Amino acid sequence: MIRSTQSRVKYKDYTFELINPKPVIEKGDIIIESKEYTRYSGELQVALNQMKNSGKSSIVGRVLEEEIYLLDEIRPWQKFKFIESCVF
């Protein structure tokens, strides 16, 4: 996982309800941990590998297939950002 812990700090008073808990998390899925994970509630993550969803993680978006290769270039403590794209 690529993790951004700042979201859970910034939104510590917000209640993150569970939404779209797909049974399998795929590489490139964008995840926000729900209130079910108490301490990690609100943490933003990007999946680097396929894994089983514990049922506590909300899938809120996805990296475009043609840009998934970029995930392999992100290193620990390196900054990253999302740029919204409209795909129809």
Rank of each mutant, 00 (worst) to 15 (best):
S7P: 04
R8T: 04
V9H: 12
V9Y: 09
V9D: 10
K10W: 05
Y11Q: 02
T15L: 11
E17C: 04
E17P: 04
E17F: 13
K22W: 11
V24T: 14
K27R: 13
K27L: 06
G28W: 11
D29L: 05
I30W: 14
I31F: 15
E33V: 00
E33Q: 12
S34K: 11
S34F: 05
K35M: 01
Y37L: 10
Y37H: 10
T38H: 03
T38M: 06
R39Y: 15
R39F: 15
L44V: 04
L44F: 14
Q45D: 09
Q45F: 15
Q45Y: 13
V46E: 00
A47Q: 05
A47H: 04
L48M: 10
M51G: 15
N53W: 11
S54M: 12
S54D: 15
S57A: 12
S57E: 09
S58D: 11
S58T: 04
V60Q: 06
G61L: 02
E65W: 00
E67A: 01
I68H: 04
I68E: 14
Y69A: 03
D72I: 03
D72M: 09
D72T: 06
E73C: 05
R75L: 13
K79Q: 09
I83F: 08
I83Y: 07
E84K: 12
V87C: 05
